[in-house]
């Protein structure tokens, strides 16, 4: 099936929300791929970070929603400091996560984590993990 792109998808609410929440200009990205080249979590991602931006540029919300990439971002800001165009990808990833989380859909279920693990993990791991992955 061909993907339909129109001014409606390009200017969809989703695109606007990502731009608003992240404060980033998605069109500044020229798809050089440097973010993906340096991303430490890339090995586990189904889409590269630059592809997420590209899909967001095109307004293809479902493709992004189907991808795990934004949930695997560790907010390490490597892409942020190296982006030649000054796009803060960390913020874009956060915005996309929040659009899902604000629908009350959690990525991590606290009850799934073994009790021992919770006892073992440092507090900063648990709090930040829940901050990033739960509503």
């Amino acid at each position: 099936m061909r993907i339909q792109i129109s001014s409606r998808t390009l200017h969809s609410d989703f695109v606007k929300k990502v731009a608003e929440i992240s404060g980033q200009d998605l069109l500044a990205c020229n798809q050089c791929g440097k973010c993906s080249a340096g991303c430490p979590m890339c090995f586990a991602m189904d889409l590269l970070p630059n592809q997420v931006i590209r899909l967001a540029q095109l307004g293809l919300e479902e493709d992004i929603a189907a991808s795990k990439t934004v949930w695997l971002c560790a907010s390490c800001f490597t892409c942020t400091v190296r982006c030649p165009r000054g796009v803060d990808l960390g913020r874009v990833m956060e915005a996309i996560r929040l659009i899902t989380l604000r629908k009350n859909v959690d990525y991590v279920e606290a009850s799934d984590i073994p009790r021992d693990t919770i006892g073992e993990l440092p507090q900063i791991a648990l709090v930040s993990g829940f901050r990033k992955h739960t509503a």
Binding site: F43, A44, V108
Partner: peptide, 18 residues
């Protein structure tokens, strides 16, 4: 390079890799 950070909570295997 990042150690994987809070991904340890939900994805400990990835941290092993990092």
């Amino acid at each position: 390079e990042c150690c994987g950070s809070f991904q340890i909570v939900g994805n400990p295997d990835f941290i092993t890799q990092c």
